[in-house]
Amino acid sequence: MSSTTQMKSTQAIGKKPQLQLGSQGKAVLELEELLTKLGVYRQPAKGIFNKSVQFAVKLFQFRVFLPPDGIVGPLTWQVLDTENPVNMPILRFGSSGKAVANVQEVLSISKHYGGKIDGEFSTLTEKAVRAFQKSFGIEIDGIINQETWTALSQIPRGYDPKWFLTRAVSFSGKPGFCRGSAPVPTLPIHDLQAFQGLGLFPSEEPLQRMKQPWVLDIGLTR
């Protein structure tokens, strides 16, 4: 993308309204269409920012390393436009903090990292980054730059925000089960309606599978 085109795109994004639960109108329709294109929303676009839309926004934000607050502001609009993480720090050997922990989590899921999720960019983490970069065919330098962040955002990650329970819940309200190679979404009963926006509905089947790039298998029992 040329600098002129990128500037125009940024200016257009700056004019978009902030959207959140309860918002309505053309901007919400556009949001729903983008979320549908990205595979995180499966309901008909109605221009109403309901709980299903909010949940889809949170899933998308989590995928691209944004705080999953369900509010569509400038940064979320920008990532929806570019389909790449934005404003991510450059990480290398010696870096530390939450961003490093996020990288370690993803590398653990992708089977490139077997160490602790401690937020320390150690020799072991650097080795894992290099292996990951090699598997994605990008420059092998052990540094987390924009290209590597984009590749990391494509790895499936379970979504488990604080307002979810820590275990699966059955439709009867009793503990259920879940399976997958990483933490998975687990819903309390009152959140099942929001989850319908992803196309997962109550069923007589003991296990419902949801295959999204950033959502692993989810088991919900009756």
Rank of each mutant, 00 (worst) to 15 (best):
M1E: 13
T4K: 13
T4W: 07
S9L: 10
T10E: 13
K15F: 03
K16R: 15
P17L: 08
P17H: 11
Q20L: 07
L21I: 09
G22T: 08
K26G: 00
E30M: 02
E33H: 14
L35S: 04
L35H: 01
Y41L: 10
R42E: 15
I48A: 10
I48Y: 03
N50E: 07
K51S: 15
S52F: 01
V53T: 15
V53W: 06
V57C: 12
Q61W: 10
Q61G: 12
F65R: 03
G70S: 04
T76R: 04
Q78M: 09
Q78C: 02
D81R: 13
T82Y: 00
E83V: 08
V86D: 06
M88H: 01
P89F: 08
L91G: 04
G94A: 09
K98T: 05
A101V: 09
Q104N: 00
E105G: 07
E105Q: 11
S108H: 15
Y113R: 07
E120W: 04
F121N: 02
S122D: 05
L124W: 04
K127D: 13
A128G: 02
V129G: 05
R130L: 11
A131K: 11
F132E: 07
S135L: 03
S135A: 15
I138P: 00
I140E: 15
G142F: 09
E147S: 12
Q154R: 11
G158Y: 02
Y159P: 01
K162L: 11
W163R: 11
T166E: 11
A168R: 13
V169K: 10
F171H: 00
S172V: 03
R179P: 00
G180Q: 03
P183N: 03
P188M: 03
H190Y: 14
L192W: 15
Q196K: 09
G199M: 08
G199N: 08
S203G: 07
S203W: 00
E204M: 09
P206T: 05
L207S: 12
K211M: 12
W214H: 14
W214A: 12
L220V: 15
